[in-house]
């Protein structure tokens, strides 16, 4: 005989359990709010101070040549182009190494001691601070090899920062491709290299591309390598070998001590908002790539 079910065993908890519930629930909600407050605050500040600046057409079409911190006018074209150009050089160098490295680790060396060693090194590399990457490139290219500072040097230090994140994300995407697809290709008499090129990579493509774009978005906001390896200028410089090239992070840094009443002060907020928009644009692009990849599966 089982004990009869009484109503009391079905009612909501009371007493100390109820108090605990309310307190913990309150703490969880509060933590959520606290986590979001600084983010919203920063966004509101930057948008309210930066939006009027970037709404002018000149902001997107002119550099700061001929202007001073006291004189309004000019724009951030030189810094936008510089950021995009250094980002592009970084991606061109880092993406092939990262993707081919991930293919080596997953498709050819999976489970071997060599793969574990390389993975360990990549983990270490992903933990180094950007200033260390910058000083490494400075010591190697400029102190030892006697090159000048240049946009390429700055891009190379960003490569060190982008490489591990893209390699890791590509590795994860390749791991998600089921072995049954590789076997299906082998069973058709397709060689391994061709299987990787035509079956494995297309299947993982949207994931790999998403990782690349997110990795790029991350390094575009880096400042330390740019401060150390390339000089800021108020003019537009296009040559990647020139030792002067403006970028949005260094433009923000240069204007940080300008008095609040001057035009240069507003430009700092404009540059900050522009950088956020660029990075956000890349993030949206990544989402769009990921979604386009999923749609194709249906």
């Amino acid at each position: 005989m089982s004990a009869p079910t009484t109503m009391s065993s079905l009612t909501a908890p009371r007493g100390s359990r109820r108090v605990t519930d309310v307190v913990v629930r309150g703490l969880v909600y509060l933590s959520g709010v606290i986590a979001v407050v600084p983010l919203v605050w920063i966004l509101i500040t930057i948008i309210s101070k930066g939006l009027p600046v970037i709404l002018s057409a000149a902001w997107w079409t002119q550099d700061l040549a001929g202007t001073t911190d006291r004189r309004a006018g000019g724009g951030a074209l030189h810094a936008i182009i510089g950021t995009l150009e250094i980002g592009l050089i970084t991606a061109v160098v880092a993406v092939p190494i990262a993707v081919l490295g991930a293919i080596f680790l997953i498709e050819y060396a999976r489970g071997t001691r060599l793969a574990r060693g390389v993975s360990f090194m990549v983990d270490i590399l992903s933990g180094i601070p950007s200033i260390v990457a910058a000083l490494f490139v400075f010591a190697f290219l400029i102190t030892i090899l006697h090159f000048d500072r240049s946009a390429i040097a700055a891009a190379l230090s960003l490569v060190l920062l982008m490489l591990p994140t893209v390699l890791r994300s590509t590795e994860e995407m390749l791991k998600l491709v089921p072995d049954s697809l590789r076997e299906a290709a082998y069973a058709l008499g397709i060689p391994k290299w061709r299987t990787i090129l035509t079956v494995v990579i297309p299947t993982a493509f949207s994931g790999i591309a998403t990782g690349v774009v997110l990795g790029l978005a991350r390094v575009m906001g880096e400042t330390a390598p740019l401060l150390i390896l390339v000089a800021y200028a108020r003019n537009l410089y296009l040559s990647p070998t020139s030792d002067t090239m403006a970028t949005l992070p260094t433009m923000i840094n240069t204007g940080r001590d300008v008095a609040e009443t001057l035009a240069g002060y507003d430009r700092v907020w404009g540059a900050a908002l522009t950088l956020i928009l660029l990075v956000m644009g890349l993030n949206l692009l990544a989402r769009w790539i990921a979604r386009a990849g999923r749609l194709k599966d249906r």
């Binding site: 697809l181 076997e183 299906a184 058709l188 008499g189 397709i190 035509t198 079956v199 297309p202 493509f205």
Partner: peptide, 30 residues
């Protein structure tokens, strides 16, 4: 493996390819 083909336990069409490309994949890739 070109002479001896194989069909697996779970259907495994290539997800990145259309029906046409799946069937043509063996020839195309060769």
């Amino acid at each position: 493996r070109r002479l001896v083909g194989m069909v697996f336990q779970r259907p495994n069409p290539f997800p990145s390819m259309s029906i046409y490309d799946n069937v043509a994949s063996g020839l195309k890739l060769n």
